[in-house]
Design a protein around this nucleic acid. Structure first.
Lengths: 178, 178
DNA sequence: TTTACGCCCATAAATACCCATGTTATCCCA
DNA sequence: TGGGATAACATGGGTATTTATGGGCGTAAA
């Protein structure tokens, strides 16, 4: 199914680069990404190559994904009439905030200033798989979010009365393997 | 897919020139633009070369694009009956203010007075990708626009994003489903 | 002439590209 | 089954291109 799964934490180096977790890279490649070196024919930033990133609308995180994500965005706009003011306005938020980041020969991207500040990133980034896309978080911020997410799940369980499994507290962290 | 994506802010120099962001240039070239020097054979301003620009109908901005944009405008008109009043009006609105700007050997254009005042441009221009076309804004004006655009998307998301997915707070972010 | 524009060159900074290294997980073979 | 050889990854850093931007100059238009 090629979904983004699991979480990984990588380091931002002095040049602002981060390695994309290898499993995510594999998903991106299967999703139609062709890498500059070591993968396939080069692709310029605006033509199918690169990953699509934009600031999450309601979280201090960056959303990222490949072609599939891009098509999803297109889908949102496809219903609107060309040249309507409404379409322009939505396009601003949907396309205007997107950055296309190239993956270098070593599987790394450079996070632009704007995105980095939105997510409060400094030296570490936590990549979180969410299926069709993934998110990049400041590790501590993500830990907090994860915690609250668990609590919500707990509540839901109570509502449904499913005693069931466990909320395994020691989930996967760095390098869950693929 | 060759879409205009992302935003860039460039400077207007003493001669009124602005660099077109390199990624946009790449889209334009693939879209059928041939540059005077360093790109391909020269093209006169009225024959496929140059970018199409006109004042946005409902915003203090300039719309710009390449061949695809021109064809889309044609498409809109062809949907209307010949000689209808509506068509005439639209033709004037869409074609009347169009300017074809040449890109110089260094990837720059000169913004004519009329367009500059319409958008309130002085020393900086923000290029905003909107898919098939892009817009040029005065940076501060664009900031305001971006803000309102984001709010609108939030609303839309509520309407769309009810694919009934999950209780997972991090699941659907921007556009739950296409 | 005077102004505006196209064309060329120069340069600093940002970006892409390339290779090297430390570490860890994997595999093979005795 | 233990241990060394191997391969995959994340990470660091050097170097070559690309890009944005400033300015000079000749030519064409007014």
């Amino acid at each position: 199914m090629d979904r983004f799964v699991s979480t990984f934490t990588n380091k931002i180096d002095a040049k602002g680069r981060v390695s994309i977790p290898a499993p995510f890279r594999a998903v991106l490649e299967r999703d139609g990404y062709s890498q500059g070196t070591g993968g396939g024919p080069p692709a310029s930033a605006q033509s199918g190559g690169g990953i699509y990133c934009y600031p999450s609308l309601d979280a201090a995180a960056i959303d990222g994904g490949g072609e599939r994500l891009a098509q999803k965005i297109d889908g949102l706009l496809s219903g609107l009439a060309d040249y309507s003011d409404e379409r322009d306005e939505l396009s601003v938020a949907l396309y205007g905030d997107v950055q296309i980041l190239n993956i270098d020969g070593d599987g790394r991207i450079v996070l632009p200033e704007g995105l980095r500040t939105h997510a409060g990133l400094t030296t570490l980034v936590t990549f979180v798989g969410l299926g069709d896309k993934f998110q990049m978080w400041e590790p501590k911020a993500f830990e907090a979010r994860r915690k609250s997410a668990r609590e919500k799940v707990q509540e839901h369980r109570k509502l449904f009365g499913q005693g069931g499994r466990s909320a395994n507290p020691s989930d996967d962290e760095r390098g869950g393997s693929a």
